[in-house]
């Protein structure tokens, strides 16, 4: 293919620079688009209600007040109770910590077995677990509600931990299996020759190699479980709701004056833990996202 431009002098410097500027302008505008909601949330949460009613969405607060934050944390109403987000925030903490720990540990051991101790049927089991990751959870809501009832876990934090562990195993196993499958099987063989057993090899050989995938899995599970709403709203009761459900109740409670600044402060509080994780360990977060979709 011949190029019509060949032989002509290189594009003039000025044109090149203008193009560069245009590129930056477009990228900058998109950055504004993505940042705008966060900015609006923060600005609104720091305004008084009078200022919100009188002023513009994108204006900085004229007088900064943290009153809405205090209300959102400790006295906003989520229905008939008016204790703010605080108890629900702790519900989310106390359900996500064990749920993340248990599902990650199970995933690590499962991945280790499937990748390194291959036996007949292991691949079939892996495929079945993998398909389980993709079901719409609506299809298990009804029987799970009844099962939690039989187990005496209806509306409890332990019930939610149980649900998150069960439906998290598929992804955690996938993560660890795909990571361990790249480790040569000779490693296990050599360790066996040295007399090490199944668990010994796992703890002393594989665990020390697993820090990156452990980070990816913990962050993935934490984000999923903290942000979950469907299980939270289906399987909790007054008092045991996770923070996402409480946030939705605050925003959509119809009693009294609509306090938009409190809504926004509450939304930021609910988002802070995952935003913090993203800020300090974004690299692993992105790896988890892409590993979940581009496998292998």
């Amino acid at each position: 293919m011949t190029d019509p431009a060949r032989g002509l002098p290189a594009a003039p410097r000025a044109g090149q620079a203008a193009l560069r500027w245009l590129l930056f302008a477009i990228l900058g505008l998109f950055a504004l688009f993505y940042l705008m909601p966060l900015f609006v949330m923060i600005a609104t949460s720091l305004k008084s209600l009078e200022e919100i009613r009188a002023g513009s969405l994108v204006a900085l607060p004229a007088r900064v007040t943290f009153e809405a934050w205090g209300t959102a944390w400790s006295s906003a109403c989520t229905g008939i109770q008016c204790e703010g987000l605080r108890p629900y925030f702790w519900n989310s903490v106390s359900l996500s910590v064990p749920a993340v720990a248990i599902s990650t540990l199970l995933g690590a051991v499962n991945g280790y077995v499937i990748a390194q101790w291959r036996f007949r049927g292991a691949n079939l089991i892996f495929s079945l677990m993998l398909f389980g990751c993709f079901i719409p959870f609506q299809v298990v809501l009804l029987p799970m509600a009844r099962t939690l009832g039989f187990m005496g876990l209806t509306g409890s934090i332990s019930g939610l931990v149980f649900v998150h562990v069960i439906y998290g195993i598929g992804f955690t196993t996938l993560f660890f299996r795909n990571y361990y499958v790249t480790i040569p099987v000779e490693l296990v063989k050599a360790a066996k020759v040295d007399g090490a057993g199944f668990f010994r090899i796992f703890w002393s050989v594989f665990m020390p190699l697993s820090l990156p995938i452990l980070m990816v899995t913990v962050i993935w599970q934490f984000t999923q479980i903290w942000n979950d709403f469907l299980f939270g709203v289906s399987f909790s009761q007054a008092g045991t709701q996770p923070v996402t459900v409480a946030l939705n109740n605050i925003v959509n409670s119809t009693t009294g004056v609509k306090e938009y600044n409190v809504d926004m402060a509450a939304a930021i509080i609910a988002a802070l833990p995952t935003l913090f994780v993203y800020a300090v360990a974004g690299k692993y977060f992105i790896r988890g996202l892409t590993a979940g979709s581009v496998k292998g």
């Binding site: 966060l38 925003v251 988002a271 977060f285």
Partner: peptide, 13 residues
């Protein structure tokens, strides 16, 4: 990284 509930709340406002 945000919950869809947070996203929905922000955009509703």
């Amino acid at each position: 990284a945000l919950s869809m509930i947070v996203t929905g709340t922000a955009w509703k406002w």
